[in-house]
């Protein structure tokens, strides 16, 4: 598990609009990489190109290369469905399947992959929920609907669902933006634990969060309204927040932006 991501010359489009332009970066395995930047700079779009979720929007397309170790995710014979099985995703708003129980939510990905054996599923449910720090809270009500949990619990359920299929990479698109500070703390602690097993990429609007959870930070920006977003710099988080090499990064981080 946990593979390196190597992106080169990647641009993403919505119809004829170019959302991000010519991005190249390397994301290290077993580490947390945070994407920060102003709204509309394309960090979420870029995140979604890493598991080919970008192209599920009608008219959206991608140019360039994303290597997961030595496999190009945009290669000619690569099935996007298979890509999404090895690159998991957690969304901004908690989105457990409302029609499923907690148990069924966790094993949804495995069931899609054809795993049916009850003993296997039971084991995965316990391991994934424990991995998501949710087991103790829900172990007595696994057959209750997932939508009945609190927002923070729902988000941890979604993380459990994502890690249940044992992906190589875990993408998180502002996973705490709909949560209160306590739940946010729980998720941040969890991210710290998960990075020993997974390559984690997290988009966040909260710079303190980026500073707290990430090892490396990438700053994205756009030249102006209607311009495509670009990667400004990627460096160790400590360096980005203390001594960035680009002026725009320092302006953004210190709040002297715009």
């Amino acid at each position: 598990m946990a593979k390196r991501i190597d992106v080169s010359g990647l641009s993403a489009y919505y119809g004829s609009t170019r959302a991000i332009e010519d991005i190249s970066m390397t994301i290290e395995p077993r580490s947390v990489t945070a994407f920060i930047g102003p709204s509309g700079c394309g960090k979420s779009t870029f995140l979604r190109t890493l598991n080919r979720m970008h192209e599920v929007i009608p008219g959206a397309r991608v140019e360039g290369k994303v290597m997961l170790d030595d496999e190009n995710l945009y290669g000619a014979n690569v099935d996007p469905v298979a890509v999404r099985r090895s690159v998991g995703m957690v969304f901004q708003r908690p989105n457990p399947f409302p029609t499923m129980s907690i148990y069924d939510n966790v094993v949804a990905g495995l069931r899609l992959a054809g795993v049916k054996k009850k003993s296997v599923l039971d084991g995965v449910v316990e391991r994934s929920l424990q991995g998501a720090n949710l087991w103790n809270e829900v172990k007595d009500r696994l057959n209750k609907p997932g939508a009945g949990l609190s927002g923070g619990q729902q988000q941890r359920l979604c993380i459990a669902r994502a890690i249940a299929v044992e992906p190589e990479v875990l993408l998180m698109d502002e996973p705490c933006s709909a949560l209160d500070p306590i739940s946010t703390l729980a998720i941040e602690d969890l991210i710290g634990e998960l990075k020993s097993q997974f390559t984690i990429v997290i988009v966040t609007h909260n710079m303190q969060q980026a500073a707290r959870v990430s090892d490396r930070t990438a700053f994205f920006n756009l030249a102006g309204v209607g311009q495509p977003g670009k990667l400004i710099e990627l460096d160790d988080t400590q360096r980005i927040f203390s001594n960035p090499s680009v002026q725009a990064t320092e302006d953004y981080i210190s709040g002297r932006f715009g």
């Binding site: 979720m53 469905v81 999404r84 457990p96 992959a113």
Partner: peptide, 18 residues
């Protein structure tokens, strides 16, 4: 059907029919 539920399924590696 909320878009986020459909995306949840797709992100787990569901085909369109799944």
């Amino acid at each position: 059907v909320p878009r986020m539920h459909e995306e949840a399924a797709l992100a787990l590696g569901a085909t369109r029919w799944e």
